[in-house]
Design a protein around this nucleic acid. Structure first.
Lengths: 219, 219
DNA sequence: TTTGGTGTTTTGTGATCACAAATTGCGAGG
DNA sequence: CCTCGCAATTTGTGATCACAAAACACCAAA
């Protein structure tokens, strides 16, 4: 009876495993903007053939988590400030709406889970763990929005996260995470009161903080 | 000196050609929701091997234009009413914003092109050409939003269009296109006056009309 | 007519390979 | 020190194939 919560990492198709592995490294900001990847490199690192590696890469490219030149060169996108503004605008349009919908969820379990994640975030902030911060912050938002039960909207937001992650990693690495304001507390309080408006505002402030930090970092 | 505007259909990678061909059929609503596709079928129809067909399909699946079961079966999504509401909500959040940004474009050429497209739409409506209507309507919106110079936002909207296209085709096929209100005229007038607010409202009304028509059709 | 099972066919998956194009490395010439 | 050019290498692409699993068709039993 080992591993009931195996997150079914095995028995998945190879291309799916490669996809998830690559996606996670992008989401963590483990890949620097502009960094170049090769199919053979990916395939070898994960002990698979080129075929599933190619499929995974093309899938990520479709989600704009990776980019490919006309000649097939694979690299991590390095969006300009303009494009980043667009991506944050998308977040500001979509995420408060998702929060609003999640607000009607009377789920006690949800609040507990969010609270736990927020504790981890606090630790990450104090210890300056940028990767841990990004990972838990993403998980906080994802968990909240899942309660909105709007998978089509959440999918859109996830692709935006993928596109901003490498840049945010760079920013947090430079500026640190110690001086960030934690809007999650306010979000949790609003959720407890089922105050959709306040929740949406807290999320908006949270997203806007990320945007402003990024603006500030861009020289 | 034939075909300078060949839209470079040749000399593109095979997987790209397959992708575009499939994407167009989805956008046109030529594929019915629930319809099943096979890699060998696609490959044979386009006279290519399975490899580029697979890549194209997986790319479309990443954009949610196609869906794949755990066992790899490929089919056109058949979203429930709930999901369609979400998709239209995304459109309502994103498209007015894109319109707003496009409004500052003083481009005379743009207005002329939009006007031409709108004429085609009028013909399509009168003749009840559902596919032509969908194609031109999409082109109208795309052309307008391209002026917003926010490719990241436009890409999000395009994926939403892909997801709703099969259902809209069904709806227009059933209810016809003759009784639709043409909000594009108002949009053009607002654009000429560079009235961002009015333009955004016209676009909102246009999108909302699509949503309402779909609601009405769902029994 | 419906249900259950069984054998056939269809289908996606992943590895391998030849090929062409792009990239890189390096040395000659300015 | 920089730039150009050529050769060696790296890299993505697309076809093919064996394989396992899923889907399907068909027939017998209730």
């Amino acid at each position: 009876m080992q591993a009931l919560d195996d997150t079914v990492l095995d028995n998945l198709p190879t291309h799916e495993r490669v996809y998830r592995a690559l996606r996670d490294t992008v989401m963590d900001g483990a890949l620097a903007p502009g960094e170049v990847l090769t199919l053979r490199g990916i395939a070898e690192r994960l002990s698979v053939s080129m075929t599933p590696a190619r499929e995974a890469v093309r899938r990520l490219a479709a989600e704009r988590a990776l980019e490919m030149t006309g000649s097939g060169r694979i690299f991590v996108p390095n969006p300009g400030l303009d494009q980043l503004e667009d991506l944050f605008q998308a977040r500001l349009l979509l995420e408060p709406e998702l929060a609003r919908r999640a607000a009607s969820s009377p789920d006690k379990t949800l609040r507990k889970r969010l609270s736990q994640i927020d504790s981890s975030i606090d630790e990450n902030m104090k210890s300056g763990d940028a990767v841990g911060y990004i990972r838990n912050n993403t998980q906080f938002h994802r968990t909240l929005y899942q309660a909105a039960e709007a998978p089509a909207l959440l999918a859109l937001v996830e692709t935006v996260w993928l596109q901003t992650a490498p840049m945010m990693r760079r920013v947090y690495g430079r500026l640190g995470t110690r001086e960030l304001t934690d809007y999650h507390e306010a979000a949790l309080a609003a959720l407890a009161k089922q105050d959709a408006k306040a929740l949406a505002q807290a999320i908006e402030a949270d997203v806007a903080q990320g945007r402003d930090l990024l603006r500030q970092a861009q020289t």
